[in-house]
Nucleic acid binder design. Structure first.
Lengths: 156, 156
DNA sequence: CACTAATAATTAGTGCACTAACTATTGAAG
DNA sequence: CTTCAATAGTTAGTGCACTAATTATTAGTG
């Protein structure tokens, strides 16, 4: 029952302490940070996942659902209803691509494009709110990307 | 090309690049790690949030809903239906506390307590799966706790 | 004691995320 | 050309997470 240590049972038991779980800290951190974004994004009328989709489209505008879902590392089934809500909000349009009737062209409306201006202040606001320097944000970002790579890693 | 430099607009625009968003990296990392747990926890018949509740109860068994919700940093409204499913699975019981009819005593059943044995291998399995050393896990954990503290910090 | 505050848990409603199943188009092969 | 597989999106179903509203009990105050 050991775990590469000399003191089998106790070490394994300690590993089951809630506070020691990386997965616990990670999910709480994720929810906390998303929660911190909430009031800021509310002023744009966006939820956090919707904000990510808009970031996506501000970078390049007519994109397919699959393209967006890959950029955000999410299932198309998750993105689909989310896009419907953004369309209802008047920020994007969904049209079939001519020449490929099964693909969808998701594009910004003028309102959606205009929202970008208001969004430019979000990263700075959040950095201030979290009390992080640009360097700290970048370090955290690298750490997260490494972790993502680890999950996608060897043989998953 | 950074912002602490002389070129204002460009830096702000760069901040809106999806790939640079800490919130993006963090949510993807969280989903990825939870996803990596999934097949491992499936063998215990638990989802990831349910696993966290069980960790909680393995540490101390008759606990109130509020107590659990505070330990997990989640709303009681989130925990409530989750506990109902754990009760249906036969892992916990929910009984009113005598002497305080509004509080609920959430306690492990023998089956719930027994499941702990099988769970002892989870942290080690996950460390191996992610290719992380104990030191790396601890460093990541500290980083996340710091980030959580930052969101709870100054004036939220 | 009656009235009110506060506390404990649940329910309703919205939205996100996943898997599995389904429709519809496109492309490839015989 | 027709069949069959691959691709693109959507829908259905389960579960998590939050806010707001509701019910029930307990505690405090006049």
């Amino acid at each position: 029952m050991s775990a590469s240590q000399s003191e089998g049972t106790q070490a394994v038991d300690d590993d089951l302490l809630l506070e020691r779980q990386l997965c616990f800290a990670l999910t709480v951190a994720s929810r906390s940070v998303v929660g911190a974004y909430k009031p800021v994004l509310e002023r744009l009328g966006l939820t956090h996942p919707q904000y990510l989709v808009m970031l996506c489209l501000w970078e390049s505008s007519p994109r397919s659902v699959r393209d967006i879902s890959e950029a955000l590392a999410q299932e198309p089934a998750t993105i689909s209803p989310l896009l419907r809500r953004l369309e209802t909000a008047g920020l994007i349009t969904r049209r079939r691509v001519e020449g490929n009737e099964r693909a969808l062209a998701v594009a910004l409306t003028p309102a959606g494009a205009a929202l970008r201006q208001q969004a430019t202040s979000v990263p700075g606001t959040m950095m201030a709110k979290l009390g992080l320097t640009r360097e700290q944000v970048e370090a955290l970002h690298r750490t997260m990307m490494d972790l993502i790579a680890a999950t996608a890693g060897p043989q998953a």
